[in-house]
């Protein structure tokens, strides 16, 4: 138990500290690196919660793809980040105050709200018994059975996104020398046929 709570505090502290560093680091590349650290620590927190699958997805998708994409954006685009951050401290008191007010309001409202009876049980109803299968298996069972429609529909949405990206950006340029593998392989002059006498070399 003690190891678990130690791990929890370690992951949380590092996650929060690196999140602060993301917005305060002077060098944008450092910001992205801190972001990756924050992702890793959040993944650790998910593992502690028993949600291995989410942890894996977080690392694969966010660290593997999104963070790398950010890195590209930061390095490719010439944005003056110091200019963007000018006046950061100046707005801090007001921004902090607004944040605090929102937090208090949320606390007041959430404290007074009632959840419909049986909501938690109803929400948990479709999931297979969590003690008999691990959660990757449970997710898989749901996505490919009960939720197959949503899964396929999401696939169609991604297909549209792909078509859209190509339609809006692809331009066919004339005079481009394209690689035609079949032609290269079937080229006559690179292949020579010879009759070899048996037992002799070339």
């Amino acid at each position: 138990m003690i190891i678990q709570s130690l791990a929890f505090y370690l992951f949380s502290i590092v996650a929060v500290a690196s999140a602060v560093m993301v917005i305060s680091a002077r060098n944008p590349v450092h910001s992205v690196l801190f972001l990756i650290l924050a992702f890793f620590n959040s993944a650790g927190l998910f593992v502690l919660l028993g949600a291995e699958f989410l942890a894996m997805i977080l690392v694969v998708v966010y660290v593997g793809a999104v963070a790398v994409l950010f890195m590209f954006v930061v390095m490719m685009l010439d944005i003056n980040f110091t200019a963007l951050r000018e006046g950061f401290l100046q707005y801090l008191p007001l921004g902090g105050l607004i944040g605090l007010v929102l937090l208090l309001e949320l606390a007041v409202i959430l404290g007074g709200w009632i959840i419909a009876p049986g909501a938690a049980e109803r929400a948990a109803a479709p999931t297979p018994a969590i003690d008999s299968v691990n959660n990757t298996e449970a997710l898989g069972q749901l996505i490919y059975t009960n939720y197959i429609y949503f899964f396929q529909a999401a696939g169609m949405v991604l297909l549209v996104a792909m078509i859209g990206a190509i339609v809006l950006t692809h331009r066919s340029r004339p005079g481009v020398r394209k690689q035609k593998i079949s032609e290269q392989v079937a080229r006559e002059d690179s292949i020579e046929m010879r009759d070899m006498p048996s037992g002799g070399g070339i």
Binding site: Y147, F150, A153, V157, V160, A161, G164, V167, L168
Partner: peptide, 17 residues
């Protein structure tokens, strides 16, 4: 509500393009 959202997104994304 999930199929509602997915339907809307599929339609809207095509329309944006």
């Amino acid at each position: 509500l999930i199929s509602l959202y997915l339907g809307i997104e599929l339609q809207s994304l095509s329309l944006y393009v």
